[in-house]
Amino acid sequence: MPVDHKRINGPEISIPYQLFDKLNTKSLKTQFSEIVQPNGTRADGRTSTEHRKIFLKTGVVSQAKGSAYIELDQTKVIVSVFDPREIPNKTDYSSKGEIYCEFKFAPFSCHKRRLHQQDAEEQQFSAIMKQALESAVFRHEFPNFQVDIYAMVLHNDGAALSAAITAAGVALAHAGIPMYDLITSVTLAVQGNHLLVDPTLEEERLCQVPLFKEEENNHGIVVLSVLATHEQISQFYQSGYLSYACLSSGIEMLTNAAKDIVTLVKKCLVKHVIKSVRIVED
């Protein structure tokens, strides 16, 4: 892997100081029971099916054709979409346009410092984002061209990928790229019998390993993106260890949660249209 020598990188091996925190000695199970009550109420007072409050805004990057900024409480993601350009280094003609996604965590967005180069997780998230957006866009409208989408996570507090996909949908609409439908995405974290919609970073972390014995060893993360009017799932990703029953109820929960966001996305786009009409009138 080529390394950019002009950048000053941190020491090659460093350990986040939080690992040495004395308060961190509690078992994962205690930590989990502290943030999620048995009835499903979470540390921030939400119920298990409740989404965090969303702030969504278009046109934040003036240089880009379309852009959007999304906040899910602490999670902050900025997405920009650039004009279609010819696919670089391509010799044969492709009848469908391509979508290029780049998902990136800002170096300061997580507990541990992220490097400037995309790591495996970011590459995977880029691929998932591409998968999600490909079926939402009229790709035959721009043959042999590619649309670049860049997502930058400024602060990761869980569900960053979902936030990026929802924002990318809005940014594409803002850029005037023809689309079949609005795309919304929601994340689910599973631990035992608890299904938590739109998890925070802490909840995501505690859902990586099984905390309960036997029978209840379901755990994992599910990310699902929906094209609401067509009732289509454009992207689905699950990791962890889940039973069919758990997964199917999770899918239902996520589809409903994703549909709820659509109103908000519409409102945001309408606001943008009204604003641009006013500018023209003036």
């Binding site: 998932i128 998968q131 490909e134 079926s135 790709r139 379901n218 799932i233 992207q235 689905f236 990703y237 699950q238 990791s239 962890g240 260890y241 889940l242 039973s243 069919y244 997964l247």
Partner: peptide, 10 residues
């Protein structure tokens, strides 16, 4: 149980 599910293709 399912350990990973992912959609591929467009």
């Amino acid at each position: 149980k399912f350990s990973t599910v992912l959609q591929i293709g467009s």
